[in-house]
Simulated assay, not measured.
Amino acid sequence: MGLKYVCNGASCMCDQGSAPSTLDVSSQNTIVIQEKLMATEDDITFNNPFGNCKIKNNYPCIPDIKTKWDDLSSTVLGKNKKVLLENSELTCAVGGKIKITDSLQTGSKIVIFDNYSPPVVTPLKKEILSVNWKNNDLENEIDSANIGDKVSLVVETKNYNEGETVVIVIDEANGKNIKSNTKLVKFSGEVNADGFAILKEEISIENEN
Rank of each mutant, 00 (worst) to 15 (best):
N57K: 15
P60R: 13
P60L: 14
P60D: 08
P60C: 13
C61W: 08
I62N: 10
D64S: 07
I65G: 00
K66N: 14
T67Y: 15
K68H: 08
T75W: 15
T75C: 14
T75R: 15
V76K: 06
L77D: 05
K79Y: 10
N80I: 00
V83A: 00
L84P: 01
L85R: 02
N87R: 06
E89T: 14
E89P: 00
T91M: 10
I98G: 02
K99N: 08
K99E: 10
I100L: 05
I100G: 04
S103T: 02
L104P: 00
Q105L: 04
G107Q: 07
G107S: 10
G107K: 05
S108P: 09
K109V: 02
V111A: 03
D114Q: 15
P119G: 12
P119S: 12
T122F: 10
P123I: 06
L124M: 02
L124K: 12
K125P: 01
K125W: 02
K126N: 05
E127M: 11
E127S: 11
I128N: 06
S130Y: 06
V131D: 03
W133H: 08
W133F: 15
K134V: 12
K134Y: 14
N135H: 10
N136M: 10
D137H: 06
D137E: 07
D137C: 02
E141R: 12
E141W: 11
A145P: 05
G148M: 06
D149C: 00
K150D: 07
K150M: 09
V151S: 13
V151I: 15
S152I: 15
L153N: 05
V154G: 02
V154R: 04
E156T: 11
